[in-house]
């Protein structure tokens, strides 16, 4: 029990510190690397809670795919630190506004807990008791495909729309000669090759 407690504080502390480093690191690539560290520690916290399925999905989806693409883009940015500092004051009001909105939203969430303590319980399904033989993968499945089937489908639909949007944004016809592999495979020697015997001193 003591070891679990120590592990919790270790992971939580690293998560918080790396979260702070994400916004305070000078180099954007370092920010992304700290973000990955934060994801990792969040996954470790899930493992401590006994939700190993969620933990690994977090690592696979966020660390293994999303953050890779993130890093991919950030690495290719050409960053001029002098220009970055000049822009700081110009964008300060806008950034402060966004920060304020997020802060108010967070306070609203916490405030709702305080005003209606049972409010959060409505959305929470009871976790299956640990000795019922139901693994947490199974428990999530049982919940997701029964009570929350509609919400689940809706989330999928939103993702589909986003995907179509991304495809539409990047799809344009470019004057490029494309490789058609079927044509290359179907090409026969007799269509393109002619063997001729040419007399000496004469052209084709």
């Amino acid at each position: 029990m003591i070891i679990q407690g120590l592990a919790f504080y270790l992971f939580a502390a690293i998560a918080v510190v790396s979260g702070a480093m994400v916004i305070s690191a000078r180099n954007p690539v370092h920010s992304v690397l700290f973000l990955i560290l934060a994801f990792f520690n969040a996954a470790a916290l899930f493992v401590l809670m006994g939700a190993e399925f969620l933990a690994f999905i977090l690592v696979i989806v966020y660390v293994g795919a999303v953050a890779v693409l993130f890093l991919f883009v950030v690495m290719m940015l050409d960053i001029d630190f002098v220009e970055l500092r000049e822009g700081f004051l110009r964008y300060l009001p806008f950034g402060a506004l966004i920060g304020l909105i997020l802060l108010v939203e967070l306070l609203l969430v916490i405030g709702a807990w305080l005003v209606v303590p049972d409010g959060a319980a409505v959305t929470q399904a009871p976790a299956p008791p640990p000795d019922s033989g139901i693994s947490n993968t199974e428990a999530i499945g049982l919940l997701l495909y029964t009570d929350y089937a509609l919400a689940f489908q809706l989330a999928g639909l939103i993702l589909l729309v986003a995907m179509i949007g991304a495809i539409v944004l990047t799809l344009r016809q470019r004057p490029v000669r494309r490789q058609r592999i079927a044509d290359q495979v179907n090409r026969r020697p007799e269509d393109v090759l002619v063997v001729r015997s040419i007399d000496r001193g004469e052209g084709v």
Partner: peptide, 9 residues
Amino acid sequence: LYLFAISSL
């Protein structure tokens, strides 16, 4: 899932 996660890292 663990193997898949590690190999994707």
